[in-house]
Amino acid sequence: MPERDAGQRAANVDVAANSSSALAHEAAAKAARGMAPEPVPPGFAAIDWSTPWFAQFAARGQRWQQAALTGYADLLAAMNADAALMQQTTGRGRRLAFIAQDDLPPGAAYEGHIASTGCVPTRHNLHDFFNGSMWFAFPRIKAALNGRQSAELDVLGVGPTRGGVRDMLTLFDENALLFACADPALSAALRGFDWQTLFVARRDAWGRGCEVRCFGHALLEKLIAPFKGCTGHAWIVDVPAEYFDWDTLARDAWLDEAVSTALLGTEALTSSLFAPLPVLGIPGWWPDNESPAFYDDATVFRAGRRKR
């Protein structure tokens, strides 16, 4: 088995290296013909690593950002260098690697390809940059999502609609927030759209009884230019009280294990498992929310199901 894993890892590294090499060769050929290099997609230079939603993976992210600003091949090379060190696996135990989007075979399902080969098709844009980042920030959750997605594809195939389970998994992957909470009253306030309790009356509980991690890569892309109505889908994670005595790495590892186990073990995955959470309302995440009046905006902090 170790030899087989080593062979798979080597195969993935070769595929990823070939993908990066092809891109680099193409760029060199254009330069030799006097053609200007392709412009860097917008947004990479605008990442503010001091914000709470990006700070959680700033150390790796800043290295990748510099690579992305240099070029597509450089970004893939940086991502694959980290993947080789981490020896992370995808939903079916394949070693993780990153390939150019154009190397996804025609007609192949994205999630199925990742599960069966370990290779994540990646574009030179912020969306896929943040997607790749989550494979390192929460590797077990990403593998669990990929495993459930590929299992659904095996049963239902690729059709005009995803189906309820795949819709929920996609929503998690794209827009989830992890709401870690040791106080049931705070979880109840979130589920009940009781923003005054969650954000004002119990404001001092944030950081001691609850906290949030951004997960969804589309949500992170939106937060390049934050706006008041930006809302994530919160997945509530009950944590022990001592969780808040641990350092950030220990907390993230605990969340990674607990959430991945839940995703693999929950048979009925539906969007009703989420609770909407306006991101800029999180205490300490946006200066304007220091004023209680910030939460009076009913177009953002809606009564929701609590009123109905």
Results as ranks from 00 to 15, higher is better:
Ala143Tyr: 11
Asn146Gly: 03
Gln149Arg: 14
Thr90Met: 10
Glu111Leu: 11
Phe129Gly: 11
Glu111Phe: 02
Gly112Phe: 02
Gln101Val: 00
Pro106Trp: 00
Ala97Cys: 12
Cys119Ser: 14
Phe138Thr: 08
Ile141Gly: 01
Tyr110Met: 08
Phe98Leu: 05
Arg123Ser: 14
Ala97Thr: 05
Arg95Trp: 13
Ala97Phe: 00
His124Glu: 04
Ala143Val: 02
Trp135His: 15
Ala108His: 08
Ser133Ile: 05
Glu111His: 14
Gly147Ala: 11
Trp135Met: 12
Asn131Ala: 02
Phe136Cys: 06
Gln149Ile: 10
Arg92Glu: 15
Met134Glu: 13
Asn125Ser: 13
His124Asp: 05
Met134Ile: 06
Pro121Met: 09
Thr122Val: 03
Thr89Trp: 02
Gln88Glu: 13
Ala108Pro: 09
Asp128Leu: 03
Leu145Tyr: 12
Pro106Ala: 14
Arg148Pro: 09
Thr122Ser: 01
Gly132Pro: 09
Phe98Ile: 08
Leu145Cys: 08
Ile141Lys: 04
Ile141Ser: 06
Ala109Ser: 15
Phe136Lys: 01
Arg148Tyr: 06
Phe129Ser: 05
Arg92Trp: 13
Gly147Trp: 03
Cys119Asn: 15
Gly107His: 04
Arg94Val: 02
His124Gln: 04
Ala109Thr: 00
Asp103Val: 05
Cys119Leu: 13
Asp103Trp: 08
Ser116Met: 12
Asn125Trp: 00
Trp135Pro: 08
Ile114Tyr: 04
Phe129Pro: 10
Arg123Cys: 01
Tyr110Gln: 01
Asp102Cys: 09
Phe136Pro: 03
Gln101Asp: 12
Ile99Asp: 08
Arg148Gly: 02
Phe138Tyr: 10
Arg95Val: 09
Ile141Trp: 10
Pro121Asp: 07
Ala109Ile: 06
Phe129Val: 05
Gln88Val: 14
Thr122Lys: 01
Val120Ser: 10
Arg148Thr: 06
Tyr110Trp: 14
Cys119Thr: 10
Ala137Gly: 08
His113Arg: 04
His113Glu: 06
Arg92Asp: 14
Gly91Pro: 08
Gln88Leu: 12
Ala143Leu: 09
Ile99His: 02
Asn125Thr: 14
Leu104Asn: 01
Gly112Ile: 03
Asp102Ala: 15
Thr122Cys: 04
Pro105Gln: 12
Pro139Val: 12
Phe138Asp: 01
Met134Thr: 14
Gly147Asn: 01
Leu126Cys: 11
Arg95Leu: 14
Arg94Ser: 03
Ala143Ile: 01
Phe130Gly: 00
Asp128Cys: 07
Arg140Thr: 10
Ala108Val: 05
Ser116Ala: 15
Tyr110Asp: 09
Ala100Met: 07
Leu104Thr: 03
Arg94Glu: 13
Gly118Phe: 11
Thr90Ile: 09
Gln101Asn: 12
